[in-house]
Nucleic acid binder design. Structure first.
Length: 482
RNA sequence: GGUCGAUUGGUGAAACGGUUAACACAUCGCCCUCUCAAGGCGACAUUCACGGGUUCAAAUCCCGUAUCGAUCACCA
């Protein structure tokens, strides 16, 4: 049978990293076996609808290259793919009633508030609370009478407290629980919408989902789902529960904590490919000693058996490093296209953007850093002459001034003012005066940029600035050092 | 509190009964170099939460303890 996985987010805001990783794993599980990856929108909570949330889901998946084969926007043979649309077809109620008929579910008239009070009493006494619904003992006649009278009701799963339920998870192995510990969860809410728990089971079955990939917070409710599958006589899917992505040792990464979402990271200058690559490694380890994988390569290398069981802390430092790797691995043309807008924003068009991009490459880890690195081309901001003191170059303000004075005539005499030409001229000056190259170069770099760290060395900056501007800046520096 | 799950360095992690406990990020050195990066080299867990047990042999298997997490919603 063809592998079919699904990503089933509820449209309640933006895409956080843990969610995206679950989507990635679901995608990989499917694509590893040339299966289908389905997007289903779970909007059964009418109180949590957020405007535009589904668009964010579409955009994120698209930017990441996690293209779904079926979904609300692309169609498919198992539609509709939005649960509220499915609900309108009366689908969930129909399935819920089947369960009522077979005795695996029942109509319940209990008031939410009453249960809440019982729970609080139990908690106050320090007892554990497990709801055993008295409504399951109501006679058919009474149930019908009360429904007819317009009383609000929900449909609950009926669980017989005897025996145990066992399920197998690809990641966590075999897990067994006592049925007596399972609570009788609501399947259909009083507003007629199904709960996640119910809609999920029904839809996964109806959509022929073969592998259920989801967070491990569902581990404890999985036995209840299995009881549902059994009640219907349906085949159970393969379960793949993923460990959580943590912010730190104690907290999960979440929207609630204001933690970075996918779009936040992109806005901060991270490349989608790098983000995807990095999160793939949170909770999963390749079998070979390699960490850089494109999405197609991940499809090949991915193996459910190598998903871990404990939460992984999201380390922004490593993402940063990986982002740098992606940036450096880009070919010059693609790199230029990426950084050009940023250069344009900060640097006068009279300068050569391609040269600047070249100088920038290998030095940038985050695109958002670019601006600060190249702002000196337009104008040297006021700087301290302490910058001229450099241990490696063996310079201080005094030495630097001499170096600049020695370099000035050589540069003025230069006809071809490019990187090589400048280097030759300055190297000669250094040699003639028995100085290390750097003793000449470093002060020029500072004079031209007002910074101790720059993309490209003194000669590259000189080439970009051009002869006139270079000479001017060196003269300014000499004056400053006087 | 009940139930279920997890536990290898600051971080991600490998190891599937026998290795000097990989590798990567970070950190710290050194080298290269016209700065900074990048790159190269090296340092960084006498030890795998703790205590027992099984075994010739345990990070790996078993049992307890501790700690952390998840769940116990008409949220997903």
């Amino acid at each position: 049978m063809k592998v079919r996985t699904r990503f089933a987010p509820s449209p309640t805001g933006y895409m956080h990293i843990g969610n995206l990783r679950t989507a990635l794993y679901a995608y990989l599980v499917a694509k590893k076996d040339n299966g289908d990856f389905i997007l289903r929108i779970e909007d059964t909570d009418q109180n949590r609808q957020v405007e535009g949330a589904t668009d964010i889901i579409y955009d994120t998946l698209k930017t990441c290259g996690l293209m779904h084969d079926e979904g609300p926007d692309v169609g498919g043979n198992y539609g509709p793919y939005v649960q509220s649309d499915r609900m309108k077809q009366g689908l969930y109620k129909e399935y819920a009633m089947k369960l009522v008929k077979s005795g695996h579910a029942h109509v319940c008239f209990c008031k939410e508030e009453d249960i809440e009070i019982q729970k609080q009493i139990a908690n106050a006494k320090g007892e554990s609370f497990l709801y055993r619904d008295p409504c399951k003992n109501l006679s058919k006649e009474e149930v019908e009478k009360r429904i007819e009278a317009g009383e609000e009701y929900v449909i609950r799963q009926t669980i017989k407290p005897e025996g145990t339920t066992t399920f197998d998870d690809e990641v966590y192995g075999s897990i067994t629980v006592n049925n007596a510990d399972l609570d009788e969860m609501i399947l259909l809410k009083s507003d007629g919408y199904p709960t996640y728990n119910f809609a999920n089971v029904v839809d996964d079955h109806l959509m022929d989902i073969t592998h259920v990939v989801r967070g491990n917070e569902y581990l404890s409710s999985t036995p209840k789902y299995n009881l549902l599958y059994e009640a219907y006589g349906w085949d159970k899917p393969v379960y793949i529960h993923c460990p959580p992505v943590m912010k730190n040792e104690h907290e999960k990464l979440s929207k609630r904590n204001g933690d970075a979402s996918f779009q936040d990271l992109v806005a901060k200058g991270y490349l989608p490919e790098a983000i995807l690559n990095y999160i793939a490694l949170l909770g999963w380890a390749p079998s070979e000693e390699r960490e850089i994988y494109s999405l197609p390569e991940l499809c090949q290398a991915f193996d459910v058996k190598r998903i871990g069981t404990s939460g992984a802390i999201f380390d922004i430092e490593k993402l940063k490093w990986m982002n740098g790797v992606y940036l450096r691995n880009m070919d010059d043309k693609a790199y230029f296209e990426l950084v050009e807008p940023m250069i344009k924003e900060t640097v006068d068009p009279k300068y050569n953007y391609e040269d600047i991009a070249k100088a920038l490459k290998d030095r940038v880890m985050l695109l958002t850093e670019v601006k600060d690195m190249i702002d000196f081309f337009n104008e040297v901001k006021d700087y301290s002459i302490d910058l001229y003191a450099n241990k490696k170059a063996k310079t201080n303000a005094e030495v630097a001034k001499k170096s600049l004075e020695l370099a000035l005539p050589a540069l003025e005499a230069l006809d071809t003012f490019d990187n090589d030409g400048i280097f030759q001229a300055l190297a000669k000056v250094a040699a003639d005066n028995e100085l290390k190259n750097i003793t000449i170069m470093y002060p020029i770099q500072v004079a031209l940029s007002g910074k101790d760290k720059t993309p490209g060395g003194a000669t590259m900056i000189g080439q970009i600035l051009g002869k006139e501007e270079t000479i001017k800046r060196i003269k300014d520096a000499i004056a400053k050092l006087a």
